[in-house]
Simulated scan of single mutants.
Amino acid sequence: MSILSALSRWFSGPASAAFAECDVRCASAAGLHRMAYTEWGERDNPRVLVCVHGLTRNCRDFDRLAGALARDYRVVCPDVVGRGRSGWLKDPAGYGFPQYVADMMVLLARLDVEEVHWVGTSMGGLIGMIIASQPDSPVSRLVLNDVGPVITSESLRRIGDYVGKAPRFDSFADAEQYIRLVSAPFGALSDAQWRQLTESSVRRGDDGKWGMVYDPAIGEPFRQAYLLHQDVDLWPVYDAIRCPTLAVRGAQSDLLTADTHAAMGQRGPRAQLAEIADVGHAPMFLDDAQIAVVKGFLLEA
C-alpha cells in the first residue's frame, strides 16, 4: 500500500480520536477471505485492546469505547467474517466458533503482540472466552459483555427469529425503524445514537434499497442451535479461564441470567461483576457511565 493510499484511510472518530480501516487475509476450508478491522491509537503502543462485536453487529459498535481508550491502548476492532466490511464465506457451514477463533488468531499474529486485553459483546465475548480458556492464551484481561457460560434457549429463540431474515428497506428511515425494533434491548438510546447504529448497520445497494451489512447465511448454523430447545452450557470453558475477568450484565438481559451472572463471580476466574440498569441484551458502551465501567477494570492493570 502506498503512503498516499494509507493516509487516505484515516478518518475522524468520536472523542477526538482517529482510526484506520485495515484488513487481513484469513483462510477457511472453502478458500480465502478478508477480515476487516478498525485500528485506533498509536500502532507502536505495546498495550493492545481487541473489541469484538455480537452476532449481527460489526466493529463500528465500539467507536465510542475505542475513542475513549485510544490514548491508553492500541485498540483493534474486527468485523467478524460475514459482517461489516469483511468478506463472506463461500460455505455458510463455516459460520461458527472454530472459524471465528482461527481468524482472530490470524489477526493477533498480524498485530505482532504477545498479549492483549479483550472486550467481547455476546458472540465476541464467547470468542474471547474460548481463546482465554486455552493454555498459553494471549488474552491477559477479559471483559465479557452480557454473555457467559450459559446461553438461554429463550434468548436463542428471540435472536433466531430475526437473524438473517431482515428485509431490504426502501429508505434509511425504514431501516432505522427496523434497527430500533430488533435492538430495543440496547436500552433508551438517543435519536443520534440510533442513527449512528443504523448508519453502521446498513448500506445502500445498486437497486437503491438499504440492506443489512451481514451475510444472511450467518443465521443458519445459529438456528440449528436453538432448534435443540435447550440452554447451551459452556461452564467447562469458563472454568478454564485464568486471567482477570469482568462480567457485565444488562439488568433486563434474557441471555445472561442473574443467577448465571452471580455464579460467574464464584467460580472459574471469579469475575468482577457489574450490572447496567434499564438495559437488556446488550449494553452498547455509548455513554460515559457504561464506558467508565470497562475503562476502570481495564486500566486497573
Rank of each mutant, 00 (worst) to 15 (best):
I218E: 06
H117W: 10
I131E: 10
H53W: 03
F172N: 05
H117C: 14
H261F: 09
P138M: 01
V279F: 04
R85V: 00
G250A: 09
S201M: 01
L4D: 15
Q134A: 14
G296S: 06
M104P: 12
G250D: 11
R180Y: 02
R158K: 08
I131D: 05
I151C: 00
R242S: 13
Y226S: 11
S200Y: 06
F172H: 06
T121Q: 08
S183I: 01
Y238F: 13
F11A: 12
G128M: 10
P283D: 09
D72W: 09
C59T: 07
S201Y: 02
V106F: 03
R64Q: 10
C77V: 14
V293L: 10
S5E: 11
A132C: 15
A132N: 10
V80G: 03
Q134R: 12
P185C: 02
D63Y: 07
K209D: 00
Q196Y: 11
F11W: 11
E300T: 12
D91H: 08
A166T: 03
A274T: 04
S12I: 07
D259H: 08
D206I: 03
E39L: 14
P269Y: 03
V48K: 07
R223T: 04
P236A: 10
M284V: 00
F222A: 03
F169D: 07
L299V: 10
E21Y: 07
V80R: 04
D161C: 05
A17K: 00
R47K: 13
A301P: 08
R141L: 10
N45E: 01
A27E: 15
E275G: 01
A166Y: 00
V147M: 08
S86C: 14
H117I: 02
Y226P: 03
S122D: 11
Q134L: 14
A225Y: 04
G125W: 10
R110P: 00
A289K: 10
G31I: 13
